[in-house]
Every structure is written in C-alpha cells, then in structure tokens.
Amino acid sequence: MAIKLITYGHKKKPKSLGLGVFDGIHKGHQAILSQCDALLTFNPHPVTILHNTITLDRLTTVEEMTHYIPQLFVLEFNKMIANLSAQDFLNKIILEKINPSHIVIGYDYHFGKNKEGTPELFKQWCNSHNVPITIVEPISNTDQIIKSKAIRTHLKEGDVNQALNDLGHPYLMIGTVIKGDSRGKELGFPTANLKFPTEKLIPKKGVYKGNITIENKPYKTMIYIGNRPTFNTKTTTVEAFILDFKGNLYDQTICLYIEQYLRPEKTFPNKEALISQINQDTQNAYGP
C-alpha cells in the first residue's frame, strides 16, 4: 500500500501547516485555521477505518474543505496509515512529503498507531527538527468545549441553531442539482432538487433560510428538507427555492449555505394551504 497524498492548491512548501480532520470547521478549528496557510486532513474520516462498524456523516467533505484554505493536503487514511508509528507518521509523511516551516495542532491532536502520538511528543519532534509548533487551546461556548460530535447530533436531531452558532458560519453543502418531479414549479415556486455525497450530513427535516452561490453571486434561498410522504418515505430530499433567480441549473454543482432553522416540516390539507405557508415562510425570513 503506497502513501496517497493529494494536494489541492499550489505545490509550494507550506509556511504554516495545520493538522487534523477539521470536520465542521467549527470555532475550535478556526482557532487553528486562522494561523495556517495549509491544512493536512484525512479521508475517509479516520474513525471509519479504525472502527469498521461506524459510518460517519461528514459535516465537511474534502471538497468543501477546499473553500476554507488555499492549500489542502488530503492523506488517504487506510489500515497502513492507521498502523504507522507516531515517529513514522512524523518522518515519512510530515517531513518527507510536506516539510512545512511551522506546525499548528489542537490541544487534543493524537496520531500514529493506537493514538500513541500526543501533542507533547509532536513538540519534542518539532524541537529536534527545528520546526516551530503552536498548540492551540480549546474554544468553548459558555461551558462546553465545541466538538464536531455534538454539532453533528444537534444538526441531525437537536438544536440546529445552536449547532450553527458553534460552527461560527453557515453550514456549507456542496451538491448537484438533479431532476425533480416539478411539483414545486406547479405550485409557483420552482425549486432545485439537490443531491449530496452519501457521506454528507443532511440536517433535520424542516424549513431553513440560507443562500446559494451561483457564479460567485449569493442568492437568498428557502430550503425544505424532508421526506416526500406521497412517494418514497425513506429518502430525505433537499429542495431549494432560490429567490430572484431565473435559470436552468440542472446537473450543475452548487454551494448551498444553511443560515438558520425556521420551523419543522408540516403536512398541509391542500395546495392552497401549502402555497400560503411558503409565502409566509419567505416573508418571515426575508421580509415582504
């Protein structure tokens, strides 16, 4: 098994390299990112390789991560990498493959086989290799340290707006526009049906306010996440009603930013009631 490392961005040696999974790019991660011009991340999420049974929903896919940093190193995480000793990880990957001028890690960064690598060990290695290292302390929101795991849970089934607050930025979802059943168009609200990678975390069902960026211009958007009770109750669909936009987006890759959770989904007795509610939602979100 060879070491597979893909670089996104320029190929020059990074001045300041941050290491971690950074799933979510939450406020804690941002404390690291703000000091880096490059990141080293792992794909798939190491947890899925170390514990074969866990499937993990990604708050941030590798593609989405490229939006937050100019140079991204993606190391394919597999059993071979998981079994590298802490020293081998540092020498064979950090030094040999990347050779950064400065390292930035979080207070809880562990690496190498059985997590034997600690921030303290990293510090010792950096000292002997004359590479300055910064270890970043945790960021808390009131009394709890901000963690990706809690954000995942909240986005899926809890307090979505608290999760968005902990993220510190809108929730980015990069997906493609696929053909829907034109139901939205029939109601007078043409909607884009969006498809996301299977590992991407879809927030809980409901109505959201957000924006979609098309050719670098953001458009106010209402987002509906839910089942289609009339059709397949198992698949969750994400529909975006883009205000003030006319055009065909089929097959295009778009950046959807979820800004705020507005209300849970509701079933309506008839078409008119649904149209009235959509108008109300839009007014509540963006004014008349």
Binding site: K4, L5, I6, T7, Y8, G9, H10, K11, T66
Partner: peptide, 14 residues
C-alpha cells in the same frame, strides 16, 4: 493512475 495535485489557480493537474 493517481492524482497528486490540482491547482485551481493555474488550472494544472499533476
């Protein structure tokens, strides 16, 4: 066949 680098600024693939 493996991708080593993609630079969106220069539009070069290695």
């Amino acid at each position: 066949i493996n991708l080593l680098n993609y630079d969106p600024k220069t539009q070069q693939i290695e």
